[in-house]
Amino acid sequence: MELLFLGTGAGVPAKLRNVSAVALKLLQERGAVWLFDCGEATQHQILHTRLKPRRIEKIFITHLHGDHIYGLPGLLGSRSFQGGKEGVTVYGPKGLKEFITVTLSVSKTHLQYPLNIMEIEEGILFEDKDFIVEAKKLDHGIDSYGYRIQEKERPGPLLVEKLKEQGMMPGPYYRELKEGKKVVLENGSVINGVDYLGDSQKGRVVTILGDTRPCTAALQLAEDADVLVHEATFADGNEEMAWEYYHSTISQAVDIAKKSNAKLLLLTHISSRYTEEDGRQLEAEAKQLFDNCVIASDFLEVKVPLQTE
């Protein structure tokens, strides 16, 4: 599980930062990528990475401001032209379906894969045997959502040494035992994988918030998160401007991280007024408030480790 930032700027594209998009790479977990927001030129940013658009199976849009959605029609169309056949589900606020369908219709873009558009409300959006995705409405000028991606509890490690003590050396049975299944050996004896697994591993939590002022929903979504992605459009000292434009300052984002007990804070949606040198200074100031904090830059990749690592 890794996060790949494709755009970390706010409002308009800039030389230093493109507009909002972040990919959650779940290649080992499900062979797929989930994309959160898709600002203008997101597909251009993808060209500079190893990410394959055909791997994108879900797209979560936080809100319908242009710097978060203007790249979506192009990406959907290019994915089809590049041979993507597997279906895609796009989640987002009311109005998203009209935006996508009208744009594709007017441009005569015909997708070669099924597209499912789900206009959301607060609650559980998706759940399978491995993950739960929950959304809550944040405090912004238009409907803006935050997403909590929670991995379910993972089976414990296979106790290889214990198996070897029983005379069972590594082989094809190990995979089934790792899954907690029973296997029948050639001599007829039965081994239950459950008896050879260590303690289960707590699943990871990644919280990705859309544009927002500090609010209760942000705290709830970020509770005990392994990684919190929070906007920090303005530097400290600009609280009034942040409030007026429904955004957050760095220290306000840090406050959410501390109160929610998040382990790592990744700050994004940085105003284009800040230079690269400004960014280094802002990160230094942020670290004084919360040591495990990084101001994300375009193409930053962050691994979300298992809690045992």
Rank of each mutant, 00 (worst) to 15 (best):
S80C: 08
S80H: 12
F81L: 13
Q82M: 08
G84V: 07
E86C: 07
G87Q: 01
G87W: 00
V88P: 02
T89K: 01
T89Y: 00
G92R: 06
P93L: 06
P93W: 07
K94N: 10
G95W: 09
L96M: 13
K97E: 09
K97G: 05
K97H: 10
K97M: 10
E98T: 07
F99P: 06
F99C: 05
I100W: 11
I100G: 06
T101I: 09
T101Y: 12
V102T: 14
V102W: 09
S105F: 12
S105D: 15
K108E: 14
K108W: 07
K108G: 05
K108V: 06
T109Q: 14
H110D: 09
L111N: 02
L111P: 00
L111H: 01
Q112N: 15
Q112M: 15
Y113Q: 05
Y113R: 04
P114I: 10
P114A: 12
P114Q: 04
L115G: 02
N116M: 09
I117F: 04
M118Q: 14
E119P: 02
I120D: 09
I120F: 05
E121V: 12
E121S: 15
E121Y: 13
E121D: 15
E121R: 14
G123D: 14
G123W: 14
I124L: 15
I124M: 12
F126T: 02
E127H: 02
E127P: 00
D128P: 00
D128N: 02
K129M: 11
D130L: 08
F131M: 14
F131Q: 11
I132P: 00
I132V: 14
E134A: 10
E134L: 05
A135W: 10
A135V: 11
K136A: 12
K136T: 03
K137Q: 15
L138K: 08
L138I: 07
D139L: 02
D139A: 04
D139F: 01
D139R: 01
H140A: 15
H140I: 03
H140F: 12
H140R: 08
G141I: 11
G141K: 13
G141F: 14
I142H: 12
D143K: 12
S144V: 01
Y145W: 15
Y145D: 09
Y145I: 06
G146K: 06
G146E: 06
R148D: 12
R148L: 08
R148Q: 13
I149T: 03
Q150D: 04
Q150P: 01
E151M: 05
E151W: 01
E151H: 01
E151F: 01
E151C: 02
K152C: 00
K152Q: 03
K152N: 01
E153F: 10
E153C: 13
E153S: 10
R154H: 08
P155N: 11
P155H: 13
